[in-house]
C-alpha cells in the first residue's frame, strides 16, 4: 500500500510500488488530464506537482511518493478558474491540447516560486515541455497574462 495526498485528498493504492505514478493517476485513480507522451522525461505531457515542484510523473514510481502531496491539472482549480487556466482561454492557446495540462502545471510551478518571471525565465522554464502544434509564443503570453493577474 502506498499512501499519499492527491489534489488535497488522502489516497491509498495497492499498485506495485514500481508502477509509474502516471499510470496510477490515470488508470487507478481515473484522473485523465495528466497525459502519457514519451515515458522518458522528454515531453512533459505528464507534468504534475510533487510537494509543489513540477515533476515528470512518468519518471516516478508510485512507491517513491509515499506521503507526498501530488497535484494534477484537476486539482489546480475546481472550476477552471486558476489564473493560468483563465489566461490559457483568453490567449486561446491550445490546438490539439494534448500537452496543455502539462504546460499549465509546469507554468503553475514557476509562478508559485516566481510570481513575476521575465520572458526569458518563462522560456527557459517552459523548455522542459514539448508542444508539437507549436503554441509556444501563446504559452509565453498566457503565462505573462496570468502573472499580471495573480
Amino acid at each position: 500500500m502506498t499512501k499519499f495526498t492527491l489534489n488535497g485528498k488522502s489516497v491509498d493504492v495497492d499498485n506495485p510500488p514500481d508502477e509509474l505514478l502516471l499510470l496510477v493517476i490515470r488508470d487507478q485513480i481515473g484522473l485523465k488530464g495528466t497525459k502519457y507522451g514519451c515515458g522518458a522525461a522528454m515531453c512533459g505531457a505528464c507534468t504534475v506537482h510533487v510537494d509543489g515542484e513540477a515533476m515528470f510523473s512518468c519518471q516516478l514510481s508510485v512507491g517513491d511518493i509515499e506521503g507526498a502531496e501530488i497535484t494534477t491539472i484537476e486539482g489546480l482549480s475546481d472550476d477552471g478558474t486558476h489564473p493560468l487556466q483563465k489566461a490559457w482561454v483568453a490567449e486561446q492557446v491550445p490546438q490539439c491540447g494534448y500537452c496543455q495540462s502539462g504546460q499549465i502545471m509546469r507554468a503553475a510551478a514557476l509562478l508559485s516560486e516566481n510570481p513575476s518571471p521575465s520572458r526569458e525565465e518563462i522560456v527557459d522554464h517552459m523548455s522542459a515541455n514539448l508542444c508539437r502544434c507549436g503554441t509556444y509564443n501563446r504559452i509565453f503570453k498566457a503565462v505573462e497574462r496570468a502573472a499580471r493577474e495573480v
Binding site: K32, G33, G80, Q92, G97, Y98
Partner: peptide
C-alpha cells in the same frame, strides 16, 4: 474555440483516455 476550456482543464477526452 469550443474546446479551449476543456483543453485547459484536463477535461478533453482523447482515445487514450477512454475507459
Amino acid at each position: 474555440r469550443r474546446d479551449v476550456f476543456d483543453k485547459s482543464t484536463g477535461r478533453a477526452v482523447y482515445a487514450i483516455d477512454v475507459t
